[in-house]
Amino acid sequence: MECAANIDTIQDAFLFIRKTSYDEKRDGINTEEQINKFLDRILELQKYLNTKSDKLEEINNKLEGLSWLNDLKESHLLSINDLIASAKDLHSILIRQYVNLNYLRSKGVAKESIKRFKQVIDDLKENIADIESIFFFLPKVPEFVETTRQLSLIK
């Protein structure tokens, strides 16, 4: 009886090991495929983020360009005010997207692309604040306006 029980135990172990060995061999191939797919996805994510960052840099350049416009009329300021509101909306959307990427960033996935994405989002915020100051706040600071006037008189 004991002999038969031993054989069953051995057989049970053998079957378990054989099945596991087979699964591991089969899954090993699948895992490699999965890693490749995963790496492809990371590359896609990096490309996607870099494309977004490029577009945001273009927006930032356009915002900087606004500061060099001369002879603006009331209608232009109205348009700039609308533009600032849209840009603020865009910034809120982008910040939410960045927060969603935090887990990946903490794991070191697409780290540089995510970092660049955050930097251009921060630049957007800074440019929005600057444009709002230039057209709506600084012209209302008497000291600032007076300094501009006096500088124009310097010989």
Binding site: W68, Q119, D122, D130, S133, F144, S152
Partner: peptide, 24 residues
């Protein structure tokens, strides 16, 4: 050197804010 953000709307005496060494 006339690039960056012009803060004072003056063409003859521009007051400029400029980013150096990239975003950060």
């Amino acid at each position: 050197l006339l690039s960056g953000v012009r803060l004072n709307n003056s063409s003859a005496e521009p007051y400029i804010k400029k980013r150096l060494e990239g975003s950060g």
